[in-house]
Design a protein around this nucleic acid. Sequence first.
DNA 1: TCTTCTTCGAGAGCGGTGCTCTCGTCTGAG
DNA 2: CTCAGACGAGAGCACCGCTCTCGAAGAAGA
Lengths: 244, 244
Amino acid sequence: MGTVTTTSAPGTASTSARALARDHLTRAILASARAQLGTVGPAALSVRAVARDVGLASSAVYRYFASRDDLLTALLVACFDEHGEAVEAAADAVDPADLSGRWSAVAHAFRGWALEHPWDYALLYGSPVPGYEAPAQTVGPATRVTRVLMGLLVDAAAAGVPLARPDEPAPGPAFHAAMTGLRGFAGADLPDDVVLAGLAAWSGLVGGVTLELFGHLDNAVGDREAWFDALTRRLDPFSPSRAG
Amino acid sequence: MGTVTTTSAPGTASTSARALARDHLTRAILASARAQLGTVGPAALSVRAVARDVGLASSAVYRYFASRDDLLTALLVACFDEHGEAVEAAADAVDPADLSGRWSAVAHAFRGWALEHPWDYALLYGSPVPGYEAPAQTVGPATRVTRVLMGLLVDAAAAGVPLARPDEPAPGPAFHAAMTGLRGFAGADLPDDVVLAGLAAWSGLVGGVTLELFGHLDNAVGDREAWFDALTRRLDPFSPSRAG
DNA sequence: TCTTCTTCGAGAGCGGTGCTCTCGTCTGAG
DNA sequence: CTCAGACGAGAGCACCGCTCTCGAAGAAGA
């Protein structure tokens, strides 16, 4: 669905001059689109501008991407992968037993990438692009970050750490039923309090970065690092277990 | 900046046929734009489509709104006001002494309006529109919701309720300094733990609604009401004080 | 080597967009 | 009653996504 057609069968790396040229141009188009996305936002991405940038007629770009939406899909996959990789790397650099440390690393990597690529972040976690529906091929890369977070939850559950706060009422059976899909996705039978704690932390993280990046803290919060540090600590779902 | 010019001085309601017609058409354009926004998203809003809808030549619309961005600004103000009013009404319908109840009402009203107006919500809290910079006149309406939340924090601070969790480390001096703008905005000298608790709850709320509305819970969470109920309770910054 | 099939790039073109300018018309104030 | 100002329509400009056609160039078979 990304490229229109492929001369060689999938897996067999053709080295013909034509295939090489095709590969090169596909990459150039994607890179140019990515660069344009960095300055102008997904909704304003222009196939014609990309074509001008790589030195092609606008119609020629359609030999490589069937439509603007296809180009958007490729960008979506690239950004999700890059973002996921950054978060994974940060999580893996921390002692696996230190859940709070892993959480903090994940949160800061999440925000760090977003600050470096604000429009890419908007493509991933901002408003949907009006006419565009993300195809199935994007859900894999899209879930890399959530997979990292779920890894934290699975480890917490395996260690038997309760993530509910002392006074927090247990989520009811409706919540348990609602989370069937997520439990299946995690591949582990996570307790409800763990799932809820994880989702709340995830919401707070996305919300915090979104508020900052989309300008909702502009006249309210000065030092953004201090703000995010404090937010991360406050959201840390594993923090209660450290003291108690 | 909204309308191009006004025949009558501001405040004096002119009843001349021309002024009436102008008022009527301005409203019709805004209503049509709002309706179009409801189906297609801010980035795809088309002045020409609005013109067709209200039965005008596209050029005539520019007699009423100087540009597409001006129309967007008017929509932004209208949506912020509507959203703020919904949240305010929900908060005012609860016993003022019941902080957790007010929080829950605010959160559910926030989400309720967002679910009813997904694209309007995207305009308010989603990605920035590429070429568009929100003018100063939007910040007033934009802060209505946050004002309600800050009212909660001010009341909590006045009641001397500590909002930090038992094991939570106090935010440092850098955080205190970062929140100068917000304290000035609140008009009260809120303690750091109260500010942090409020911002974290605010982040979680925006993040939760954003995740749900922008499709990030699609294959993970079934019953959305159950999920949001549980999230709201988990995020409730006043909950610890109830039990302790 | 010659031929045939496919791929590719360019250009023209269609209907859409935001926006500007001009040109008649009509209104309201002096 | 007159005349400046407001107004609507239309043409036009530069841009957009996308399609179609056509000629050049590469790949593959005879």
